[in-house]
């Protein structure tokens, strides 16, 4: 007897302790909707997190969960996945947790390519510790720890993930439930590591972080939606596009009669060469539209599958053994009852 689970069946019932208006609510909603649509059994899902507002996530879901320590969720998740490859493993992290204290683990999670889905809620601020710069805060950000403006240069999560070898990299806003659900479903279905950056607002400490993305009135003009195989077009009137000029992406106006729409760059998320994905990743507000959607989605060997395949192959050659044989492997000798020294060469 299997009952179809509804979205709310994936909620634990524990009341989220996020601030009113926090972007995390939308992500929780979109995430649980994705689980329901994927019809994943709750007992086969493990959500692992670190420390921070985003890392409270496991407590609010009715799945297995491990609320770890600061920055180390990728390590725990890798252990879970290696031990039990059949489980659906999700890491929920933030810009501080995932890219600052956990930066080293982030690199190695991406390069190993286990079938783990990473959701990074990027609000460009430390919220739980009440407002200090994070590694994604823009230069000049005035916070409690940088009262005169930060001099740090921010890291770009998508660029970093792709540089580390991510085989799936996507960016979504926290206000678009449908897009959250669709991209998280694609992340789940991707074989290998999936990195999803959520542009998320911290109502209390950084509510202006993503206004150009989150305000529906601004989004079309300031963002570009990446769709595999489709030309790179954006704008309120879908009147702007990108074409190649040498190695550069050149913004052009489609109203310009000299521009041929066939010359526009078509997004190719499946290209094994990450150059286009990286060029899109470094587009920033002010001079360009900010890309949303799936930057990159390529197939590479999956870590835990490679580990288990190798182990099984060697096992099939070596055969099974017993403690008795294990302890007696190599050079041994026996002492018979009553004898003193008896050598067995």
């Amino acid at each position: 007897m299997t009952e179809t689970l509804q979205r709310k069946d994936y909620l634990s019932g524990q009341e989220p302790r996020w601030c009113v208006g926090c972007g995390d609510y939308g992500v929780l909603k979109g995430f649980t909707a994705a689980l329901a649509q994927l019809e994943l059994p709750r007992e086969n899902i493990v959500i692992v997190s670190g420390i921070g507002c985003s890392s409270r996530f496991p407590h609010y879901c009715s799945t297995y969960g491990f609320h770890g320590i600061h920055g180390r969720a990728p390590a725990i998740a890798t252990g879970v996945k290696l031990a039990r490859p059949e489980l659906s493993v999700w890491v929920v992290t933030g810009d501080g947790d995932g890219l600052s204290i956990g930066g080293n683990h982030f690199l190695h999670l991406m390069r190993r390519n286990p079938n783990i889905n990473v959701i990074l809620l990027n609000n460009r601020i430390y919220g739980l510790t009440k407002g200090q710069i994070s590694p994604t805060s823009p230069t000049g950000a005035k916070t409690k720890s940088t009262p005169f403006g930060s001099v740090d240069r921010p890291v770009n999560p998508i660029q970093l993930a792709i540089a580390c070898g991510a085989t799936f990299a996507a960016r979504i806003p926290d206000t678009d439930n449908k897009m959250i659900t669709e991209v998280l479903k694609a992340a789940h279905n991707h074989k290998g590591v999936s990195f999803v950056e959520v542009l998320q607002s911290c109502e209390i400490f950084n509510n202006q972080a993503w206004t150009k993305v989150n305000k529906k009135s601004e989004r079309a003009e300031h963002t570009i939606l990446l769709q595999h195989g489709e030309p790179l077009i954006w704008g309120n009137n879908r009147d702007k596009g990108f074409r190649f000029n040498g190695f550069d992406l050149e913004a052009v106006n489609l109203d310009d009669p000299s521009v041929d729409e066939n010359d526009l760059v078509r997004h190719d998320a499946h290209a094994s060469d990450p150059t286009l994905a990286l060029k899109l990743a470094i587009l920033d507000f002010g001079v360009s539209p900010y890309p949303l959607g799936i930057f990159r989605q390529v197939e590479e060997p999956v870590y835990e599958e490679a580990v288990w395949t190798l182990d099984r192959t060697i096992h099939s050659v070596q055969g099974a053994s017993t403690i008795h044989d294990l302890l007696r492997a190599g050079e041994t000798w026996t002492v018979e009852s009553g004898s003193e020294k008896q050598a067995i060469p």
């Binding site: 493990v46 692992v48 491990f66 770890g68 180390r72 990728p74 390590a75 725990i76 998740a77 890798t78 252990g79 879970v80 996945k81 290696l82 031990a83 039990r84 489980l87 080293n104 683990h105 690199l107 190695h108 580990v307 182990d311 096992h315 070596q318 055969g319 099974a320 053994s321 294990l326």
Partner: peptide, 25 residues
């Protein structure tokens, strides 16, 4: 010849973190 997984981690922290994840699993 036994069901053993060995994981050379990126650092000491990840080594025990993965072990604790496997214990949970």
């Amino acid at each position: 010849e036994f069901p053993i997984t060995t994981f050379q981690a990126e650092d000491e922290i990840a080594a025990i973190g993965a072990a604790l994840g496997a214990s949970f699993a």
